[in-house]
Design a protein around this nucleic acid. Sequence first.
DNA 1: ACCTGAACACCGTTCAAGT
DNA 2: ACCTGAACACCGTTCAAGT
Lengths: 183, 183
Amino acid sequence: MRTLAKELGYGVMSLYNHVADKDDLLDGMLELVAAEIELPPEHANWKTDVRACAISAYKALLNHPWAGRYWGRGPGPNKNDYHEAILRVIRQGKFSEELACQGYHALTMHVVGFAVQVAELSFSNNQELVEMTKKAQLDMPVDRYPYLNEHIQFHLDGKDKTNNFKYMLDLILDGLEHQLKTS
Amino acid sequence: MRTLAKELGYGVMSLYNHVADKDDLLDGMLELVAAEIELPPEHANWKTDVRACAISAYKALLNHPWAGRYWGRGPGPNKNDYHEAILRVIRQGKFSEELACQGYHALTMHVVGFAVQVAELSFSNNQELVEMTKKAQLDMPVDRYPYLNEHIQFHLDGKDKTNNFKYMLDLILDGLEHQLKTS
DNA sequence: ACCTGAACACCGTTCAAGT
DNA sequence: ACCTGAACACCGTTCAAGT
């Protein structure tokens, strides 16, 4: 609040003429984030549509790294539109009510769960990440943590070329598709 | 800090004789949470072992709802043991280095991503959840959000009987198993 | 209707002083 | 070695007073 007011060039208390609360302000900010999410069209391919929408939501959350932590607060028009879109697309894709419920939760939980964790890391560049990784490695002797060291080395060698958000997303989507077909 | 000191019956500053920082204190607390995770045995079934370990980690995080938010901080012996265990089990299960990397991230991201979001909700009982849901429903007219309302009704009717954490976990595990077999 | 400073009840932490 | 109160630099917010 105090920082924001200073940035705007007003006294702190002026903010409370436009906003009830810090919570109220946050809700408004979250709605702006939700507005960035590109929503899928009517009646097309559920899998590609829900995939694109999830990726768009993920990008919106990473555009505003503070946002994921607060995403679970109250409802809001733009946030509702996003959730409605996900549910609509899979229901129109012939998901049963039950499978839609499961798929909806799996997808939305994945998006913000992944986003909060990636946003938390927040190193400014890759070099900084490498430094942090190497420092962490000092607390992990190879004889006690052989697999952990192997894994870290795998990353340091730049061998991890997969986008892990999309990788998990596809695990979920493929799993749902399989359940849809065999139900 | 101030609250903790009062609870212990000491002055605030006495804490700094046992702990460098609030961060230092949190790291210690996180290690205690990590200690609650039951680690899998050597050389058994990767799928059931990694599943049990993930569920145990999830339960530990929910036992201490504040913990998920800070899980991504630095390394720590107990936290390292947990990560080492996951990596070991899947590598011993004949995962390639690459698939192990993907599986490791998918599993660990799922556990804490899901935990932080569930912990955030934090209503004390089911009645309270129903109240909150119904209040949220007021901002969601049925004509504008038909699928969202259908979904909420599905929950209010108690028809969602799936444990969504385990459901997603099995989606991931089954996907990994499939990739393991066809690689 | 909008702005504002003083004041309140909170934080984590430094520092100097105690035993 | 362990404890501690005063003090500092922060928070979000209430309240009464301004225009």
